[in-house]
């Protein structure tokens, strides 16, 4: 039986569209055609995602700059095999998305993707997700690390290591949201002290 786990199997690869029919309470991403369940978020995780979305949305105001999407939104990043990802927060600029399709996932790469690390996703899982974003053309990726109150900023494409922001620094919209900043301290402000 011990060998069963490593017996080469070729599961049928799924298409992104097959995931639109999932029951309401099931959330999943598609990584090269293979379904990956997305667990429910912790309180801290959900709060931080909301706080960041709100900061961006409030900063945009009535200006036609683009749209902010929550973590239930599926983005088709690649086809054959299909890659469907759901960033914790995403922003798509107006010039790339005039009107929202009434149904179906968005078949484009967001301009900004935000991920918040949880104890369950380490380097192995997260580096794959970030690589999917960068390869699909996401221009800016923020990865917030609640454990160290820091963040990694990917704004140099696939060929650059990220810049790390320390707890006293701020996230910057760069070329995607010129002029937007939010201090990391605000993103982590609602969290209990680390020394528990």
């Amino acid at each position: 039986m011990a060998t069963a786990a490593h017996t080469p199997t070729t599961p049928r690869l799924k298409k992104a569209e097959e995931l639109t029919d999932l029951p309401d309470d099931v959330r999943a991403e598609l990584v090269d055609g293979v379904m990956l369940m997305v667990p429910l978020a912790s309180g801290a995780h959900g709060w931080m995602a909301t706080e960041i979305s709100y900061a961006i949305r409030a900063w945009i105001g009535d200006r036609p700059l683009g749209r902010v999407f929550d973590s239930s939104t599926g983005f088709i990043l690649r086809r054959d095999p299909d890659v469907l990802r759901a960033p914790d927060v995403a922003f798509v600029s107006a010039d790339r998305l005039r009107e929202l399709p009434p149904r179906g996932f968005l078949e484009l790469a967001p301009d900004l993707a935000v991920e918040i690390l949880s104890p369950s996703n380490g380097y192995v899982a997260m580096s794959r997700k970030i690589a999917d974003y960068l390869r699909a053309g996401v221009r800016l990726v923020w990865v917030l690390d609640p454990e160290t109150r820091t963040a990694a900023v990917y704004d140099g494409g696939e060929r650059a290591l990220p810049r790390w922001l320390e707890p006293h620094e701020a996230l910057d919209g760069g070329a995607v949201l010129p002029g937007f900043t939010v201090p990391l301290a605000r993103c982590f402000a609602g969290l209990a002290p680390l020394d528990a």
């Binding site: 380490g122 380097y123 192995v124 899982a125 997260m126 990865v143 820091t150 990694a152 290591l161």
Partner: peptide, 18 residues
């Protein structure tokens, strides 16, 4: 790697090596 290896720790390591 193990699944518990944190993103920041691995990236720092890569940076140190390079």
């Amino acid at each position: 790697l193990s699944p518990s290896d944190r993103l920041r720790a691995v990236l720092r390591k890569l940076q140190d090596y390079f």
